[in-house]
Simulated scan of single mutants.
Amino acid sequence: MPANPAEPVAVTPGVLANPSQSLERQEGALEALLRRRVEAALADPAPTIPQEEVFAMLRARHASPKSGHRFDE
Results as ranks from 00 to 15, higher is better:
1 M>T: 09
1 M>W: 10
1 M>K: 04
2 P>Q: 07
3 A>K: 06
3 A>G: 04
4 N>S: 08
4 N>V: 01
4 N>Y: 01
5 P>V: 01
5 P>F: 00
6 A>P: 01
6 A>I: 00
6 A>L: 10
7 E>H: 05
7 E>M: 02
7 E>S: 06
8 P>E: 01
9 V>R: 01
10 A>W: 14
10 A>I: 05
10 A>D: 12
10 A>C: 11
10 A>F: 14
11 V>I: 10
12 T>Y: 11
12 T>C: 05
13 P>S: 14
13 P>T: 02
14 G>E: 06
14 G>Y: 06
14 G>Q: 09
15 V>L: 10
15 V>S: 03
15 V>E: 09
16 L>Q: 05
16 L>Y: 06
16 L>C: 06
16 L>K: 13
18 N>A: 15
19 P>M: 11
19 P>W: 06
20 S>R: 14
20 S>C: 08
20 S>W: 07
20 S>N: 15
21 Q>T: 04
21 Q>H: 15
21 Q>G: 15
21 Q>D: 14
21 Q>E: 15
21 Q>I: 04
22 S>M: 06
22 S>R: 08
23 L>W: 11
25 R>A: 02
25 R>K: 05
26 Q>I: 05
26 Q>K: 12
26 Q>M: 07
27 E>C: 12
27 E>A: 15
29 A>V: 11
30 L>W: 15
30 L>S: 09
30 L>I: 06
31 E>Y: 15
31 E>M: 14
32 A>R: 13
32 A>V: 02
33 L>M: 12
34 L>P: 03
34 L>I: 15
34 L>N: 14
35 R>W: 13
35 R>N: 13
35 R>T: 05
36 R>E: 12
36 R>G: 09
36 R>A: 08
37 R>C: 11
38 V>A: 08
39 E>S: 13
39 E>G: 03
40 A>S: 04
40 A>F: 09
42 L>M: 07
42 L>R: 15
42 L>C: 03
43 A>S: 12
43 A>G: 03
44 D>K: 00
44 D>E: 07
44 D>S: 01
45 P>C: 02
45 P>W: 02
45 P>T: 00
46 A>N: 04
46 A>K: 06
47 P>H: 12
47 P>L: 02
47 P>G: 03
49 I>E: 14
49 I>N: 08
49 I>W: 05
49 I>R: 10
49 I>Y: 09
50 P>Y: 08
51 Q>H: 07
51 Q>P: 03
52 E>F: 03
52 E>A: 15
52 E>I: 08
53 E>W: 05
53 E>S: 09
53 E>Q: 11
54 V>G: 03
54 V>M: 06
55 F>L: 12
55 F>A: 06
55 F>Y: 13
56 A>R: 13
56 A>H: 01
57 M>H: 13
57 M>G: 11
58 L>T: 00
58 L>Q: 03
58 L>K: 06
58 L>F: 09
58 L>W: 12
58 L>D: 02
59 R>A: 12
59 R>T: 02
60 A>I: 00
61 R>E: 03
61 R>D: 07
62 H>Y: 15
62 H>S: 05
62 H>I: 02
64 S>N: 14
66 K>Q: 13
66 K>C: 09
67 S>H: 12
68 G>D: 05
68 G>E: 01
68 G>W: 00
68 G>Y: 07
71 F>T: 06
71 F>Y: 14
71 F>A: 01
72 D>L: 12
73 E>I: 00
73 E>N: 08
73 E>Y: 04
73 E>V: 02
73 E>L: 09
73 E>F: 09
